[in-house]
Nucleic acid binder design. Structure first.
Length: 209
DNA sequence: AACAGGATCCTCT
DNA sequence: GAGGATCCTGTTA
């Protein structure tokens, strides 16, 4: 559906576990490259031991504590930019990590940004997705509901309905804390969905609360 | 000022 | 499936 920016922000302001599956099938456009999202993870803010916001607000995580619809970008391992869409009411630090997608526009440019990668791997993984789209730390705080150069388009109503039965849930990738919470969701049958890896530092299965 | 720990990726085998 | 690269961030002193 083509939402106004107010409608989109209203959707994103809902609880993060409600918003996350609605982002599956959505199109994220940055400049000339567009990715169709196939896998995301929900992070529930200060209550969630797996979230960067767990220990409160810091310079890095500040955007997450603001209103829904902004991009929270951070550096993973000091090297890879990863991006989240902030969700929930203003003041609540919930966000959805954009884990993987399929390039549906700007393929030539995307390939140039990821030399040697197969097409299915262009945006398979949160760091790769940002590299492919050209998302960098400078995009931290960009409003996907506004005129920031980053545009989010939710699936049309009929398509969202068609996708619903294909949504699967499982544990989030690579977390040492709260490793068992099934807050990652993806579209079954999509070849761009990334491979699950459990953190070697995570507690044994079932013991992490 | 120093340290420990990553919401990852790539290259092997 | 395993291991290393690599450097930012938050915490502690």
């Amino acid at each position: 559906m083509t939402h106004t920016s107010d409608q989109l922000r209203a959707v994103l302001s809902r609880p993060v576990l409600e918003v996350a599956p609605q982002l599956l099938g959505a199109h994220l456009r940055v400049g000339e490259v567009t990715v169709r999202l196939t896998e995301v993870e929900a992070y529930a803010g200060e209550q969630d031991p797996g979230s960067h916001a767990h220990r409160g607000r810091t310079p890095r995580t500040g955007v997450m504590f603001g209103p829904a619809g902004r991009l929270y970008c951070y550096l993973s391992y000091g090297v890879h930019t990863c991006a989240n869409v902030v969700t929930g009411p203003d003041g609540e630090a919930a966000a959805v990590l954009l884990r993987a997608g399929e390039v549906v526009d700007g393929l030539a440019l995307a390939r140039g940004r990821r030399p040697g990668a197969r097409d299915r791997d262009l945006a398979r993984g949160p760091g790769r997705l940002c590299r492919t789209l050209g998302v960098e730390l400078a995009h931290d705080g960009a409003d996907v509901c506004g005129d920031s150069g980053v545009t989010l388009t939710l699936p049309a109503e009929g398509e969202a309905e068609a996708l619903r039965p294909r949504v699967r849930w499982g544990p989030r990738v690579g977390l040492s804390l709260a490793a068992d919470r099934p807050w990652r969701c993806w579209l079954a049958g999509e070849e761009t969905v990334s491979v699950y890896r459990r953190s070697p530092r995570a507690t044994p299965i079932g013991n992490s609360g």
